[in-house]
Design a protein around this nucleic acid. Structure first.
Lengths: 212, 212, 212, 212
DNA sequence: TATGAATGAGTATTCATTCAT
DNA sequence: GATGAATGAATACTCATTCAT
């Protein structure tokens, strides 16, 4: 065992193994990765994994913790109250994009992959990541509508749209769309602009949102 | 049995097994499903699967065929040329939603799950499904821009947005967001309205898309 | 696969594997024996074991079946009704000894070993082997007592004694007592004689069993 | 701490760990019990076990020591020389039964279980427990025969019978025969009576022991 | 000496795939 | 072609043992 590892406390060790697991899972998928793969990548023994995690599935769940730590708090950050709508939406996209570090994208790759076919993981992902993303900004949007600074759209629907764009573009990136990957840093600005201004030029008869 | 009929039988059998595979994969995931599960569901023997498909992975690839058959051709259908922008966008969303039969959603659940962690499947999915979706409507949108009926947005970016919303909402549905599941049939209309009109009321200073 | 094995039906195959398991378990103990050991001994693959038996424990339970087949029926055989006490007891011992083929002794070695520390196996052994041995001869002994041909001993106690001697001598043999192993075939006669006649010579004041 | 006390502590610790091991082995079996189980039960660390015992097997062997201490010395106790046969046999059974404390039964459960399938343990058990039990009373019985107070039976055979009954009834108890468990304290008296008096009433033609 | 975290060899079981019938 | 029993490689997990502190 290297001195570097030795001086690490259990929690650091745990984090170290988790990082290795994220890399390996992202590269081979949850099922394609063996405990041996992960322990090798982390530079520990097979058995050590099991002193830190209950089992292989716990490694997957453990990957969600940093997602909370880094992802969730951000949207909670009180966005400047007298921001205008444009500023708010742009800031929302920007914040969400900021959470998407390479490691977070690796986590999402694996967690989304498994959540699609594992109901229990799905519930956890829903409760810890998606539901916050779908509800926290509700208050702010409601205020904007009340103040007439936003078209009177259905807020939950709006949030599905906003989160949908975010999630969809993450998928496009994870699925390897070259254009999305290449212009990744511009995407939040582009998407907020798209959503804010709409497609139809003013006066072009674009009164299309009085449905519903 | 004539060779033609024999061959036809093979095709029908293949389709039959594929349908069973879709159900089983969707329920247990690709890795959680065994050949035995699938052969039981299809009412054939284990060995029979291997006369119809090279191996387990070929079942997964086979699931993409009907996606082509039903999904891809649709966007190709020449949308009425003198449709206005609103009509075109709405029709685009409607068509894509129409492809999302329960079976297609099952296919997407499994294929997206695997594509996230399997580069080779990713490429195939990209080539056969996503690239068409991201490029075919380009021409029409370009014409709209040229005619001044659409804000002068970057077309590829626009298509990432449109496809992103679509993909993101599919994800929200597959991940079990109750609101998305419940109002599934209203979503295309809501999303096209959102995209077309934008969030900012006319005259509210929403000139936000001159960035880039 | 050898032609010899090939022609065996599943039930014969099962028996074949069970025989191998008995040999291996007897040699290494239940826990010391690996599935690989058994499959090698039987000349089949690891996986084949699991098409014939639920799991390793089922191999152990399966070993009890022949014990029933060969062991239980014997004591049931209607022993000649007008046999005298001496004849009956001798016949009882002889029959029980007959069941103790080398293979049965191997089975007993393993089953007794595990039953001592596994309550569930204990129950099964009790129900299928010991209880019959402890109760079936009750009727005959009762008749002997009623006819005054047997001292008025407590029948259940007597049967514990008879079965105890049997079980104890099996243990002595299994534990390797040289004398017991060497004179194994004489043991039933010796023990029935011992039990029948008692230790104290007639008239030596040996009226010791009027207690109770 | 003086060397003596330190040493004493080690001995006490050893005994303490051994007691814990007996309880755990009896409950889960030798193979079902982990070092962790035992160290937890004893309230020491895993590593501490290995300062007191060479390895797991040494714990098993260690369990035999108290069996010597309590079990073996007893039969050696010079039984009153002018005891009559009945008294001697009864005393023999009583002494053996006295050694069967609950803890001794736990030890026997585990040791017999393992000895059945482990030749090396078998030899040790034979040398330290069974051989003494099978030979020590020989002298006394020989004298009785010489004095004509005992039928002229083969002494080694007689001792197999006596020890066999003992061992067999211990097995019946350990295997959970309800009757044996319930009347456990009466068993020595019953069995000595049975052996002493025989089954056949005097004068009923029970001259059955002139075999051999 | 005691600790208990780390080690890694060992194993029951699964399951994609084959192939004799 | 169809069958399904047999194959055996692959793998998560356990636990006796060690050793740095």
């Amino acid at each position: 065992m290297s001195p570097t590892l030795r001086e690490k406390t259990a929690i650091v060790r745990r984090r170290h193994v988790l990082d290795a697991a994220i890399r390996v899972f992202a590269a081979r998928g949850y099922h394609g990765a063996t405990i041996r793969d992960i322990s090798s990548e982390a530079g520990v023994s097979d058995g050590a994994i099991y002193t830190l995690f209950e089992n292989k599935a716990a490694l997957l769940l453990g990957m969600l913790d940093p997602l909370d730590e880094r992802g969730a708090p951000e949207p909670l950050r009180p966005i400047d109250a007298d921001l205008d709508v444009q500023g708010f939406v742009r800031e929302l996209f920007r914040q969400r994009w900021q959470t998407l570090t390479p490691e977070t994208l690796d986590v999402l790759r694996v967690v989304l992959s498994e959540a699609l076919v594992d109901p229990s993981l799905r519930e956890i992902l829903m409760a810890r990541v998606l539901t916050p993303a779908l509800t926290l900004p509700e208050a702010q949007f409601s205020r904007f509508v009340a103040e007439g600074r936003l078209r009177p759209v259905d807020i939950p629907t709006l949030l599905r749209g906003v989160t949908g764009v975010f999630l969809g573009l993450v998928m496009l990136r994870l699925l390897g769309d070259p254009q999305t990957c290449q212009h990744w840093d511009d995407v939040p600005e582009q998407m907020s602009a798209l959503l804010l201004g709409g497609l139809v030029p003013d006066g072009a008869g674009g009164e299309t949102h009085d449905q519903d």
